[in-house]
Deep mutational scan, measured.
Amino acid sequence: MLDDRARMEAAKKEKVEQILAEFQLQEEDLKKVMRRMQKEMDRGLRLETHEEASVKMLPTYVRSTPEGSEVGDFLSLDLGGTNFRVMLVKVGEGEEGQWSVKTKHQMYSIPEDAMTGTAEMLFDYISECISDFLDKHQMKHKKLPLGFTFSFPVRHEDIDKGILLNWTKGFKASGAEGNNVVGLLRDAIKRRGDFEMDVVAMVNDTVATMISCYYEDHQCEVGMIVGTGCNACYMEEMQNVELVEGDEGRMCVNTEWGAFGDSGELDEFLLEYDRLVDESSANPGQQLYEKLIGGKYMGELVRLVLLRLVDENLLFHGEASEQLRTRGAFETRFVSQVESDTGDRKQIYNILSTLGLRPSTTDCDIVRRACESVSTRAAHMCSAGLAGVINRMRESRSEDVMRITVGVDGSVYKLHPSFKERFHASVRRLTPSCEITFIESEEGSGRGAALVSAVACKKACMLGQ
């Protein structure tokens, strides 16, 4: 009897593995994704193909990295998701002549009506938060230079001027797309009239992360975010950046690689679950690469896999709870928690219980395998993109072996128990001629924006502006 049951459990697990095998990517698959990513990057950089390229390769006008001589107080704003952060950054000489960066910050959550109302409502709310922060720190009387981390696709015309191309991540505030974001912020500050600010720089969160990590390690020339969304930036040779005049030196390019796949480059790798996630998203047909990796989508992918296993009578005796059938019910943090389970399955059992399920031991094991399959594919897909960037940098610099540091931020990278190990191992397999160091950014977005502002202020002083 026991043997029969054991055989049935083994057969069930084997069927589960057959279904989950769809998520496995072979090294040849990853090399294919990497080569296609490089081709799209090239198209994004070139003037004649930029418009139709899915990977936009947006110039950021960040050319210099901090040298350690900029000092002063800077205000930093960070808008990239449902939370908005205001930070005071003091850049100065530390002990023994070292450079020191001290920060104080406060988080504000953005109400739904500000995210989806008008641009005026959104930026009025942001300036209200700045006003509140300055009151708390008794700094209303000071006109501070301000660095703005704005983590949406922007076409820069200068370091302090950028046109919002399109909202992502659930934002829909009308009247912002096609307009200068810094102008919208300046107008809102003017409307309030109770404080003055000098907006000197606007950067993407990947750029802010790279600059913040450069402060720790001067070989950091790539910034990457794996959180709600997924994106990367890197220092490109100016001669390859056709959208900006000049051939000397390097400029940081914001790849906006989340949109890779929007022209069909990933079609052969998309599964039924991916198509369902895409169809029910706020932007169907867009940001397809990001939807395979980002935390906004990972939990939902797992939920759809679990429903398939229920329908195949391989999980929960073929019956799903009402909660499990509800879109968004299986949160991405559950994926991390399930994979963090120590082996007694308590954590998995508790999560499934909150979803109205009474799982068996085998159910718990199957749910864990589903989570591992989805998150491992995410790590491997992400590795193909980064390997594409790094191999490109090595080739354009004609280096036999390139040493490089990548600064990384984002909740999936930082909080998932195995993502970074799987990701690092896969990147290294795909970049055999590179020695890569990964560092995690601390308060990256805010500190990085302030350091970019410090560079901009120093330049302005040198130019006598």
Score class of each variant (00 low, 15 high):
5 R>P: 08
7 R>I: 15
19 I>M: 03
20 L>G: 10
25 L>G: 08
38 Q>N: 03
45 L>I: 10
47 L>W: 15
49 T>C: 10
50 H>N: 09
64 S>A: 12
71 V>S: 02
76 S>C: 04
84 F>L: 11
88 L>V: 05
89 V>M: 04
90 K>I: 06
96 E>Y: 15
101 V>N: 02
103 T>Q: 10
104 K>T: 08
111 P>G: 08
113 D>G: 08
117 G>E: 12
118 T>S: 10
120 E>R: 07
120 E>P: 15
123 F>Q: 04
124 D>V: 04
125 Y>N: 02
128 E>L: 14
131 S>C: 11
133 F>H: 05
142 K>D: 09
142 K>I: 05
143 K>M: 02
149 T>F: 09
154 V>M: 15
166 N>V: 09
170 G>K: 07
178 G>A: 06
179 N>C: 12
180 N>F: 09
185 L>V: 05
197 M>H: 09
200 V>E: 00
203 V>Q: 00
203 V>L: 02
218 H>S: 06
222 V>M: 00
224 M>V: 15
234 Y>E: 00
235 M>E: 01
237 E>Y: 04
239 Q>A: 01
242 E>Y: 04
245 E>N: 06
248 E>C: 08
261 G>P: 04
266 L>W: 01
274 D>Y: 05
275 R>D: 13
277 V>E: 06
285 G>R: 14
294 G>E: 13
304 L>V: 07
304 L>K: 04
304 L>M: 07
304 L>G: 07
306 L>G: 03
309 L>S: 02
321 S>Y: 13
326 T>I: 10
333 R>S: 04
333 R>V: 05
337 Q>C: 07
338 V>N: 01
342 T>K: 01
351 I>G: 02
355 L>W: 08
357 L>N: 05
362 T>M: 07
363 D>I: 00
365 D>I: 05
372 E>D: 02
373 S>D: 09
375 S>G: 07
392 R>M: 09
392 R>I: 08
393 M>V: 13
393 M>G: 10
396 S>D: 07
399 E>A: 09
404 I>D: 00
408 V>C: 07
408 V>Q: 03
415 L>S: 11
419 F>S: 02
422 R>A: 15
424 H>Q: 11
430 L>C: 03
431 T>E: 04
446 G>D: 11
448 G>M: 13
452 V>T: 12
454 A>W: 12
461 C>G: 15
